[in-house]
Design a protein around this nucleic acid. Structure first.
Lengths: 335, 335
DNA sequence: CTGTTAGCGCCTTCAC
DNA sequence: GTGAAGGCGCTAACAG
């Protein structure tokens, strides 16, 4: 029965190589001048012991971990992974790593423990669950924070937003221009009121509805939960109405996909009977039939920019607020 | 111009409260007996300074971080997020956290730096990029490792697999039973040979093709890259053939979705003209038209089980190998 | 060129 | 009840 051997430390290497710990440190990190023979001996000893420096000890000494946190609540969405990819690339270019921390739960226990016990040099946040005050507290007491898709400011706190509102507004305009007057809307249910980007979409679209005089009575305004299932239910409800809408805007692609399914089940054609527009331009949206018209958001860019901003916050204390444009993509489901 | 104030340490709290550091430590961690008045003073001081214990220092002292790593390369897939969710839940129940580390790159730099400089107590690995030897090395020198969907064993190394092969074999059997003799296959291109689960599917299906005497000539065996785009291309190629297949098996749902689109573009009906089967049962597969027949894998379960196994490895040195069943789900695209 | 010393922030003895 | 001392593993500063 073998003992659980402890990991070797720099002293073990030093002993084996017959030198001191600091010489080992220097040799391994390429600092200072070291005779080639001792250097060789040290490398050899390290190799023999499979020595790996402890990241924890290093971080303690260096007072930085070179790790950035990315707080997300959901992570399932395709949107997130693209943003993360953008962030990870930029972080890596600068010798940092990104770790994903899921902040799904809203319990206080999580807020005070999960959030405060990390070893991060900074963080990006995409969790609607984390309230503004929590972020401010985080930024104040722990490390700089960049919020994604949420309009917030404060000390050591930046944000980068996507212009959801104007594209949503643009959709309303297009409905008017193309003569789709009698519309339906699958919008965010109250549960999502704390999600900034979602609310932007909502406000933008409703403003457009008003400004362009679209016909959106209460019964054609449904509240969805941003899943395909929810989109399916909402659209089914819409279709059960005595007067059905000619065009429907869903606040994200997943709901729009669910809506397409409901339409299909009722034997209705898209866009001939009912036109549909989503939001996000997730990958699958251009593969379903009919291809979904939607709004594309610069997710990859967003991630990179957010990390840049975070680096800025880590160096200086300046905070920033950036707004990225979005773009309407017309495909088959609405033209 | 305000200085970048450093985070307060336990000594700062001690000074403010007029006690020693160890008393603060005891008070904050509920150890030992402390007079209520000093205790109050300490809590108060900590609050005033917004003191947060340093996770790094703690980990160094405790010789554990209570953090588990989850190495993934892609992360974009819906499959991953479900597994991660399962793992995160189980980890949390035991006072651990999971951080996602992306190991997308195959460079040596990454293998030796990214992998060795972590502060993890253990890790789950779903990166095909990380070769078996790397995992063994990891397990030997750093921390216990549980590989997901990869058949490997070694010291402090466990694995949990999903039975890809028998379901893929089952698909072939179904093709035979339902009279779909002339088939096509969109399988993994050679680039994916290091992905264990994918290879299992491949082997299982090809074994079935042989055993059940299905008609799969070379030109109807295409190599795809597991994206919708790739599935689209492969299916288009298949349809350009003089004799087109009556049923097509794609090695994952994304490719199957791409295939459906190609079929749609050619004006072919599914399953009447060509039947299609995928693999994974991603969420959207039951929403597209026609709904996709596929193979469901117990992803949520997998994550939890993997963490359990990891805990086992962290306590004892025993290693394990688990195999989880999969299930064929028949929907509209093939019945 | 190499070794000694000291300290990063915390916690665990062990005195008092 | 509380404090002083020491050490987790590493590295920077300074001697030698």
């Amino acid at each position: 029965m073998r003992e659980l051997q402890k990991r070797p430390t720099i002293h073990d290497v030093a002993r084996l190589a017959g030198v001191s710990a600091s010489t080992v440190s220097n040799a391994l990190n390429g600092k200072g001048y070291i005779r080639e023979s001792t250097r060789k001996a040290i490398l050899d000893a390290a190799e023999r012991l499979s020595y790996r420096p402890s990241a924890v000890a290093r971080s303690l000494k260096a007072q930085q971990s070179r790790i950035l946190g990315f707080f997300v609540s959901d992570m399932s969405g395709p949107v997130y992974s693209e943003i993360i990819a953008g962030a990870a690339r930029k972080a890596e270019e600068n010798g940092y790593e990104i770790v994903i921390c899921n902040s799904h739960s809203r319990e206080d226990r999580v807020l005070s423990s999960l959030l405060s016990y990390k070893m991060l040099d900074g963080s990006l946040v995409m969790s609607p669950e984390l309230e503004d005050d929590v972020l401010r507290e985080l930024a104040r007491t722990l490390f700089p924070v960049v919020a994604l898709d949420r309009d917030i400011d404060g000390e050591r706190l930046g944000c980068v937003l996507m212009d959801n509102a104007s594209s949503a507004y643009g959709i309303a305009r297009l409905f008017r221009e193309r003569g789709y007057d009698r519309i339906g809307y699958i919008g965010p249910n109250p549960e999502y009121r704390f999600m900034h980007d979602v609310q932007d979409r909502n406000r933008g679209f409703l403003a457009g509805v008003r400004d362009f005089g679209l016909d959106l009575p209460e019964e054609r305004y449904r509240f969805g939960g941003f899943t395909m299932e929810s989109g399916h239910v909402c659209m089914s409800d819409l279709l059960a109405l005595p007067v059905r809408p000619r065009a429907v805007f869903a606040a994200n692609d997943e709901m729009a996909l669910g809506a397409l399914r409901a339409l299909k089940e009722k034997g209705l054609r898209v866009p001939d009977d009912v036109a549909v527009v989503g939001f996000d331009d997730i990958l699958v949206s251009s593969y379903v039939s009919p291809r979904l018209s939607t709004v594309r958001r610069p997710c990859l860019t967003l991630g990179g920019i957010a990390v840049d901003l975070l680096f800025g916050l880590m160096k200086a204390r300046k905070s920033h607020r950036l707004l990225l444009p979005t773009e309407i993509v017309l495909r088959e489901s609405f033209t």
